[in-house]
C-alpha cells in the first residue's frame, strides 16, 4: 500500500465530501478488498452492514474481465458511520449490477460511493440506490461512471432515490458521468421525496395502522434495489425488520 492511500482524506476530496471524517479517522486506513471476476464467469455478493455502533468503512475494488458478470447487493444500515465504497472496472461486454439500500435513523451517517469504469466496449452497468432516512440521519450516494476512450457500446444506468421520513433528515445524491466515447447510452435519475400523504391515508382508511402503512410503502420503495438478487428474500426481510425499528 502506498503512502498516499494511507493519508487521511479531507472534505475537499470529492469522494469524501459528506463523510464523517472524525469517525473515519478511527478506522483509517481502509484496506481495499480485491475481487476479481475472471473472463466469462458470473459471481454474486451481498453485503449487510449492520454494525451495532461505531464506524465502518469498506472499500471494494472489483475487476470484471471480458464477459464477466458481477451482481453486488448492499444493505447499509448499521453503525454511527457506515461507508461502503465500490470501485468497479469493467472489461469488454462485462455486466455489473449494484443494488443498494441504506436505512438510517438517529444521527447515523451512511454512504455509498461508487466509481464504475467502463474500460472496454459493450459493458453494462446498472446501479439502483434507495435510501430511507429518519431523524437526523444523513444518507449519501456519490456515483461516478467513467467511460474510457473507445468504450463504444457502453450501457450504463444509475437510479438514485431517497425518501425522507422527517424534515430533519438529509439526503445527498450525486450521480456523475465522465464520457470519452461516442456510442454510449448513459441514463441517470435522481430524486428525493417524502412518503405520499394521500397514499398513506388511503391505506390507513382501509384499516392499516400508520406504521404498517408506511412500512408497506417503504418496502415497495426499496424493493427494486434487491429485485432479482439471489438473496432477495433475506435482504428484504432484514430491511423490513430495520424499517419496523425505524418507524
Amino acid at each position: 500500500m502506498n503512502l498516499a492511500a494511507l493519508s487521511m482524506p479531507t472534505k475537499s476530496d470529492e469522494a469524501f465530501r459528506y463523510a464523517d471524517l472524525t469517525a473515519l479517522a478511527g478506522v483509517w486506513p481502509v484496506e481495499p478488498e480485491e475481487i476479481t471476476v475472471p473472463a466469462g464467469a458470473s459471481e454474486a455478493l451481498s453485503i449487510v452492514q449492520d454494525a451495532a455502533s461505531g464506524a465502518v468503512a469498506r472499500q471494494l475494488v472489483v475487476t470484471l474481465a471480458a464477459d464477466a458478470i458481477f451482481d453486488l447487493r448492499i444493505l447499509n444500515l448499521g453503525g454511527a458511520y457506515g461507508r461502503i465504497a465500490v470501485d468497479a472496472r469493467l472489461g469488454e461486454a462485462a455486466q455489473f449490477t449494484l443494488g443498494a439500500a441504506q436505512l438510517g435513523s438517529g444521527d447515523q451517517v451512511l454512504e455509498i460511493v461508487t466509481q464504475v469504469t467502463h474500460a472496454a466496449p459493450d459493458a453494462v452497468s446498472r446501479q439502483v440506490i434507495r435510501s430511507v432516512l429518519a431523524g437526523h440521519a444523513t444518507g449519501t450516494y456519490l456515483g461516478k461512471v467513467a467511460v474510457a476512450r473507445g468504450s463504444n457500446g457502453t450501457d450504463s444506468e444509475q437510479s438514485v432515490r431517497a425518501m425522507l421520513l422527517d424534515r430533519t433528515a438529509t439526503a445527498n445524491a450525486k450521480p456523475e458521468l465522465e464520457i470519452f466515447a461516442d456510442d454510449v447510452k448513459c441514463a441517470h435519475g435522481c430524486a428525493v421525496g417524502e412518503l405520499d400523504a394521500m397514499g398513506l391515508f388511503y391505506l390507513e382508511s382501509r384499516g392499516l395502522p400508520p406504521e404498517e402503512a408506511k412500512k408497506l410503502m417503504l418496502q415497495a420503495f426499496i424493493a427494486e434495489a434487491f429485485s432479482g438478487a439471489a438473496e432477495e428474500e433475506k435482504l428484504q426481510s432484514l430491511a423490513l425488520k430495520r424499517l419496523g425499528d425505524m418507524l
Binding site: D196, Y202, L203, E204, S205, R206, P209, Q219
Partner: peptide, 24 residues
C-alpha cells in the same frame, strides 16, 4: 379515532379518486 381505528369500527370510505400505490 385515527383513520385505521375508524375502519376497524366498521367505516369504509370509497374514494372519488382511488389512489395509486406503486409496488404494493
Amino acid at each position: 379515532l385515527a383513520p385505521h381505528e375508524r375502519a376497524a369500527a366498521g367505516l369504509f370510505l370509497g374514494f372519488q379518486y382511488p389512489v395509486e400505490i406503486p409496488g404494493v
